[in-house]
Design a protein around this nucleic acid. Structure first.
Lengths: 343, 343
DNA sequence: CGGTATGATGTGAGCGTTCACAACTACTCG
DNA sequence: CGAGTAGTTGTGAACGCTCACATCATACCG
């Protein structure tokens, strides 16, 4: 009998239909106790008939909470960031938090600032930053977030801000140590773009381990994470005339590109050159040859980040700290004892 | 002199500070014309000092718009979905739309329904569904979305719902035709999980082309998109004793896994077996050998989806239709004329 | 059986904004 | 010089919900 209204049904419409007050409807919707079973049933029926959907904006306005977290991310077309995003997202969903995205187009503080502002104006309950920027203005970020709890992902800040990360410096060390243990002394390196903190840290770790052994990379070239850039970097390395028996690539894609470049010059892997990657993308076990690499467990990272932020949101202040996960060396066939040819 | 308040500043605080009415502040914030330059300056100054941030919830409540679109996605750890998500996201950001995510954990209508409900209660202005589900309940989805405009991405519905897609069936045809042109007659196939519409369509396209030539795949095995599953599928193919000179894989990762399995059995690519992939992941040019594949242009797909949905949001009803992009065959070294050995 | 705890429901107010409208300048022009 | 007009500012109401409190009935206790 009632005319089909253009507006979506409101709580008052439901209340009228069910013959109760709007407050009772609110109680049913929010699963409050003290609603008589019969009343609840009547209300639920009205909700169904009117296709009532609670208006989140109104609710946020009055409660000042949204059960939504904001994610600031960067470079989500790359494997690492996209995996972090997907896993973090999944973990929040499990805990019934909604997600709002703010992707940066470049790695600068200005972009970061407007992203955080936007998220805050959407009244998120917390913020996750997957922003692998190198120079972090610790106080700037704290000021930016104000009272909104936040967690930095994948960035080493020595506990100066709440953060969850995989120790990439250690990963770089693992890779370098592996090559040293195999007897390599002439080691070349393909780094990622050095304004990414991950790239810097991996490089740093490798450098430290080589340094301890009184060594240094025979040469270093920077790529942009892509296989194509790995190919070009390796080509540059070879053309420079540098001699090396092992190559450290800062991610698996660049390692793949580099292996192709090496092979095209008639170098065999691992007989002539050992190659180590980073990330352990699911494909790397199927490369030719299967790639020795450093695994990063993005699923655990996602879970840990979500758990940490939810703690911050729901328990309030915790002692400021960082949670660190360790990467792991996965030895496959792209590395071998120095100077040992095919059997 | 004023006490530092716990609450974030509101429009009224700003108004008081600037000695104007809240409405004037609103005008400044929303860049309305007819505000005297001097007043505007005073207001902006007050905003800066109080670190005022507009409350999005309040704004949404009264305007019934949020300049936010919801994205329903699935399988964002996979290459295709993650690229679609990243590119769609980027395109919306360019047009100053915020994004809210709802990821499905499984491909069912129930999950889809609760995802859409959640997005609607967050009062999104529109919805993008990257849900490569096979069976789509067209009316169900239309009912679910109600008055909220939406666009389906990457799913062929024959124009029954607004959709943007890459013609994957045609992609399957391209791959198969390429192999036929090279003289192959015994063709095996590794499909994706057949409850993904993309997997089904690629398979379908290939089947159609082979059928026209009076052929059919000598054997078919299903994978789950991963390189590991491609490896296992190829192993199954080989163990079955089936003879084939070419292999059609439904994505590049499975092709990679398959190539490894073939090589382990002593088969050379492309001399003994030609292999075609699908997607053209950036790495596939660096596989061993570089992979012939079917390219999908996810950036264009993202742009087209965003543009379409924004049209729908801002212009209102357009003639129901679908926008179709064509994939493209990228011939590399993993395919070759049948029966022509190494030179 | 009066008084009190308990459960179920309703009422008023306010969250921070925008919209529609009103009102007040100061200027222009015949 | 008075009417008209454009530009600038202010006022009241409403958006849909939750919170704090008030109210009412029912049950329980000695």
């Amino acid at each position: 009998m009632s005319a089909e209204v253009a507006r979506p049904a409101t709580m008052i419409d439901v209340a009228r239909k069910a013959g109760v007050s709007y407050q009772t409807v609110s109680r049913v919707v929010n699963q409050h106790a003290s609603v008589a079973p019969a009343t609840r049933a009547r209300v639920l029926e009205a909700i169904r008939e009117l296709e009532y959907l609670p208006n989140g904006a109104a609710r946020n306005l009055v409660t000042r909470r949204s059960r939504t977290v904001g994610i600031v991310s960067f470079g989500t077309t790359y494997y690492g960031p996209s995996q972090m995003l997907a896993n973090i997202e999944f973990s929040f969903r499990e805990r019934a938090y909604g997600l709002t995205l703010a992707t940066l187009t470049e790695l600068g503080f200005d972009d970061l600032q407007s992203a955080v502002r936007e998220l805050r104006s959407r009244s998120v309950d917390g913020i996750v930053m997957i922003a692998p920027i190198l120079r972090v203005d610790v106080d700037g970020i704290r000021r930016l977030c104000g009272k909104v709890p936040f967690v930095m992902v994948d960035i080493a800040l020595g506990g100066r801000l709440p953060s969850v990360l995989i120790d990439q410096r250690y990963g770089g060390m693992l890779a370098a140590r592996h090559l040293l243990e195999l007897g390599h002394r002439e080691i070349a390196e393909i780094t990622g773009p050095l304004d990414w903190s991950g790239a810097e840290l991996r490089h740093d770790g490798a450098l430290a381990v080589l340094g301890e052994a009184g060594l240094a990379p025979v040469m270093s070239a920077a790529g942009d994470w892509s296989a194509a850039s790995g190919y070009r970097a390796a080509a540059r390395l070879l053309e420079s005339g540098a001699r090396f028996t092992a190559l450290l690539a800062s991610n698996d894609q660049m390692a793949l590109g580099a292996m192709r470049a090496l092979r095209e010059r008639g170098l065999r892997i691992p007989e002539d050159v050992s190659v180590v990657g980073f990330d352990d993308v699911p494909e790397s076990a199927y490369f030719e040859p299967p790639l020795t690499t450093v695994r990063q467990d993005f699923a655990s990272l996602g879970r840990a980040s979500a758990a940490y932020l939810i703690d911050l949101i729901e328990q309030g202040a915790t002692p400021l700290n960082q949670r660190v996960l360790s990467p792991e060396l996965i030895a496959r066939s792209s590395t071998r004892q120095r100077g040992v040819g095919t059997c």
